[in-house]
């Protein structure tokens, strides 16, 4: 199986969120970046497991600037064979998806894996767009997947539950929790990653359909009102008469 895994770079989950330039851009000062957890823990690791048991290759792709290279190298350290970076700003999902789809069409992959969403822009967009651009079925929020020859059996999250489906390659999926267990890169992987290919290509698409105008932080919370543990009934009273929500 020839698998393409789409990885995006996001701030570490504990990163402080602050903005600069009059709240028009994210302040990356002091921020550690990681591979988006869904892309790394679930999409990439499952792809590697499939390769290890059935052969094939795993390519990772990222749309972004050269500052993403260390993050991409981490995917190589975990075990991807090679990497591609499309050298353009990833600020609009359709643009990102078009660039990935154009590359993937040219190379021909059996499966394209994405994460269910990025933890910074929370889009849940790119995977489905790639599928539509490549005219492939899209299986969103996959929590388990197995493949025998060309037929995959996938469990996905649907509204109010889960379902199991079958689909023939090629297809695109977005990975959710349950697909695999996170892996930590070992020393050998880290060494090997240094010499694995990271090819930089120029964008095939430069149209942007959306634009981020500015950011806002949520209003600060007021003080917490404490209720005595000896008399928790008072809480119910407050929720009814003060907060008026029960």
């Amino acid at each position: 199986m020839k698998i393409l895994v789409c990885i995006s770079k996001v701030p570490d989950t504990t990163a402080k969120i602050a903005f600069k330039d009059n709240n028009t851009s994210y302040d990356t000062n002091g921020v550690q970046f990681i591979i988006n957890p869904y892309d790394e823990w679930y999409a990439l690791v499952r792809a590697l497991e499939i390769k290890e048991s059935q052969g094939g290759s795993v390519t990772v792709i990222n749309v972004g600037g050269a500052e993403n290279d260390p993050t991409i190298r981490k995917a190589l350290a975990i075990g991807a064979d090679d990497a591609v970076r499309v050298n353009t700003l990833a600020s609009d999902a359709l643009n990102t998806a078009q660039n990935i789809a154009d590359y993937a069409k040219k190379e021909g992959f059996d499966m394209v894996f994405c994460g269910k969403e990025t933890i910074d822009y929370n889009g849940s967009q790119v995977g489905g767009m790639i599928a539509a651009l490549m005219d492939m079925p899209y299986i969103s929020y996959a929590s388990k997947m197995n493949i025998v020859e060309s037929k995959a059996t996938i469990e996905r999250d649907i509204q109010g539950g889960k379902e199991v489906l079958e689909v023939e390659v090629p297809f695109v999926l977005s990975a959710a929790k349950g697909m695999a267990e996170a892996r930590i890169p070992n020393m050998r992987g880290i060494m090997a990653a240094r010499t694995k290919p990271l090819n930089v290509i120029e964008p095939s698409n430069t149209d942007y359909m959306t634009e981020i105008v500015g950011y806002e932080l949520p209003p600060a919370k007021g003080e917490c009102r404490f209720v005595d543990a000896e008399n928790p009934e008072e809480l119910i009273e407050l929720l009814r008469n003060e907060a008026k929500i029960i």
Binding site: V126, M129, D157, M209
Partner: peptide, 24 residues
């Protein structure tokens, strides 16, 4: 809706319609 149905359908629709999209 940005529920699990919408999350699966909307990105495909956005390509079909060639539409810019804001989710959530």
């Amino acid at each position: 809706s940005h529920d699990l149905n919408g999350k699966a359908i909307a990105p495909i629709l956005s390509v079909e319609m060639n539409a810019g999209m804001v989710t959530g």
